[in-house]
Design a protein around this nucleic acid. Structure first.
Lengths: 173, 173
DNA sequence: TATTGTTATACTCTATAACTATA
DNA sequence: TATAGTTATAGAGTATAACAATA
């Protein structure tokens, strides 16, 4: 689905008529309220809309670090698993190998990661963070953690935890 | 993120050694278990993975109808709101107008919808389902509803309802 | 002047096939 | 023969600018 993100429709509030102090019923000023109730009863629809909303916040807050969601995921996975291979990264994040190549190349060229020869497998290469990458990942992780409560401001901490647990049950196993 | 979907890695079970009846510890047969705990603590990561998992099931089950998620959403929105305009559809589903054009054109060419002149606005056109579109949408909606419990088989009905309510709180308002 | 529907277009994301070098 | 990393490329999804017709 498409999300206009930053460019939001202003949805003109349309000022109340002259003398009317309190307009009891908006009559039918602009739009007949669309019926979206069935779509909103579907898990897929809700999951997609929610994911896009959260990712939209993520993109804004992570822009200063120059990290998009997948780049942050890769960097964080390497941070927590030094020496991880590209294949393992692909499996863990559900990325196809050809699509990871460009991401790894970019992170390498930015000096955030270093590729070392794998100790036992000559075909593979272990991925590690550079000192710079370590600093950036640390800051980005703090931001990602803080961003949570921003993106889910309508939820209590307990609801947020419950939501994440339920989401994991959907895609794990 | 990318999801290999149908083409899953077999992740070789690697048969136990010859005479060993019960191997107590798998020693270190294949992979050192990756640490993904931090990523799994993030709402955005979980929402994205869950959404992709559900959409993957949706794609398979809806393939017989030739409907992708957005096409189903548009068709369903028109079914529940006869005479809706393209603009209203874009707003409701967060689709950009230029991207809806091709979807509407495709549904029209397949004979699923008809475009009628708008009663009051000469620029707009009301969208309606054809008889064929009505039948297809009805069957597709039944499938979409049934698919829910398939995609969320790890959840109880109560958990599924709770999950959808929490997701709506994330993206609405 | 603003809005609806549209074209053209660019950029990103996702997916498949095939190559190389190692195992 | 199979696997890790890679290249090339095709296809889908998403985004902006600009236009004609109408309000």
């Amino acid at each position: 689905m498409s999300a206009p993100k930053s460019t939001r429709a202003p949805s003109k509030p349309k000022a109340p008529r002259s003398g009317a102090v309190a307009t009891p019923a908006p009559v039918a000023t602009a739009e007949p309220p669309l019926n979206t109730s069935y779509l909103e009863s579907l898990l897929g629809y809700n999951a997609r809309r929610a994911a896009l909303a959260v990712i939209s916040v993520f993109l804004k807050r992570m822009a200063p670090f120059g990290l998009k969601p997948v780049e942050f995921s890769v960097l964080t996975l390497i941070a927590h698993n030094p020496g991880i291979t590209s294949r393992q990264t692909c499996s863990a994040l559900d990325i196809l190998p050809p699509n990871l190549v460009g991401i790894i190349k970019s992170l390498d060229q930015r000096g955030l990661i270093v590729r070392k020869a794998h100790p036992t497998d000559g075909r593979a290469q272990g991925l590690h963070l550079s000192a710079h990458g370590r600093r950036l990942q640390h800051e980005a992780q703090l931001t990602a953690t803080a961003l949570e409560h921003d993106a889910a401001h309508a939820l209590t901490p307990g609801e947020l935890d419950k939501l994440k647990a339920l989401l994991r049950k959907v895609y794990q196993n």
